[in-house]
Amino acid sequence: MADGKKAAMRRGNMVLLILALLTIVEFAIALYLDSTVLLLIMSLLKAAVVVWVFMHVYRLWRGEEDHS
């Protein structure tokens, strides 16, 4: 139980770090490359990470279950 929580919190920390890095890279791309396509890809990557980890979208196609 405690291990499960620790793992989930670690996942959250990792996602925050990834989001921070991607946002910085996004900012650098805008400054130095000015590529619309790259910026859109970066934002879709960030959105995908949030949708998968924070929003648990995979729960939609799991069988019926409760929160536990």
Binding site: E26, F27, I29, A30, T36, L39, L40, M42, S43, L44, K46, A47, V50, V51, F54, M55
Partner: peptide
């Protein structure tokens, strides 16, 4: 879920408004 959704929308709006 709702709050993360609001976040996702901003993740897409941010480059559209400020960077591109």
């Amino acid at each position: 879920l709702y709050w993360h959704y609001v976040d996702v929308i901003w993740i897409i709006f941010y480059p559209a408004l400020y960077l591109i």
